[in-house]
């Protein structure tokens, strides 16, 4: 690099403040220019730092897809699982060692399409985990097939004349299945997103945050929406913050207003709490509460 020019421009090279959470040796990452997934990772890193949870107690699980690459870029215990199976993998981790804070970080196609069944049942059982779902409205990595989140009329490689299938409203799905924390933000709302992730990290039970994110190369290009920057401007002009909104009313139409905010924040016994409570009731003193492997502390 041209040192003189660097100095002239007032630019200095040092360590990025998040190097304790990111695997800098793997950066630059694979994501396209103006793709928003990297912003979601930053928000997560900020939230993790704020939450004060010891980093060796956090694990991140991703599935497959562009969004599914996140697990490979965080300097935490992380696993890149098979397509759609991040939630069951995280369930196994949590039950194997309940002291862990399990975070699933993956895409809409992965979590809601291929892994939809795991999603609804984990929410129903209130399995203790935080699910961060990057919603770019499409199966991006494989060339832009129609997803369960693709808005009506949007163009994808498998709906070249426009989508006629009704998409899922993710907060409504999570709410009706029993999630205890449900929020939606776009990656433009970096600060609010980071605060929301911090809040959800400190919550017990199944928490879900939908992160609306530009996919410049596939979704934006197929739909002639410009670059990721154009989509960021679109979010700026068309997002409405409405905390506590009725989740039934959160459908997203093609290039229509997007309601964001925190919609659900409630308490419900988690899977492990229910397991312990019930068995204590049935077996009395004979039951030894399950708290994970005895690691001497």
């Amino acid at each position: 690099m041209n040192e003189t020019l660097t100095k002239e421009m007032g630019v200095i090279e040092e360590k990025h403040p998040m190097e304790n959470i990111l695997r800098m040796d793997r950066i630059p990452h694979i994501w396209c220019p103006t793709c928003g997934i990297g912003i979601a990772v930053t928000s997560f890193a900020i939230a993790l730092e704020k939450s004060k949870i010891p980093l060796d107690q956090v694990c991140v699980v991703s599935g497959i897809g562009c969004s599914g690459r996140v697990a490979g870029y965080v300097k935490l215990d992380s696993f890149h699982s098979t397509h759609g199976r991040a939630i069951p993998f995280a369930t196994g981790l949590k039950l194997g060692n309940p002291k862990l804070k399990t975070v699933v970080f993956s895409g809409d196609g992965d979590i809601i399409g291929i892994g939809g069944n795991h999603f609804i049942h984990s929410a129903r059982r209130n399995m203790d985990m935080l699910v961060l779902c990057i919603n770019n409205f499409i199966y991006a990595m494989t060339g832009g097939q129609l997803a369960a989140t693709t808005p009506l009329t949007a163009n994808t490689s498998t709906s070249p004349y426009g989508n006629y299938e009704t998409p899922f409203n993710l907060p409504y799905l999570a709410d009706s299945c029993g999630a205890v924390y449900v929020a939606r933000w776009t990656v433009l709302h970096v600060r609010r997103l980071a605060n929301s992730i911090t809040e959800a990290l400190n919550k017990k039970g199944f928490s879900f945050i939908e992160i609306i994110c530009p996919c410049s190369t596939i979704y934006a290009r197929r739909n002639r929406l410009g670059s990721g920057l154009d989509l960021m401007k679109f979010y700026h002009d068309n997002s409405i913050i409405k905390h506590g909104a009725n989740t039934k009313e959160l459908d997203i139409g093609f290039q229509q207003k997007i309601i964001v905010g925190k919609f659900v924040d409630r308490e419900r016994p988690t899977f492990l709490e229910s397991l312990n409570d019930w068995n204590r009731k049935v077996f009395g003193d004979k039951f030894k509460e399950y708290g994970g492997p005895d690691d001497g502390d």
Partner: peptide, 9 residues
């Protein structure tokens, strides 16, 4: 804000 919104770190 620039730091937070940069997708490339």
């Amino acid at each position: 804000l620039c730091e937070t919104i940069c997708p490339e770190f």
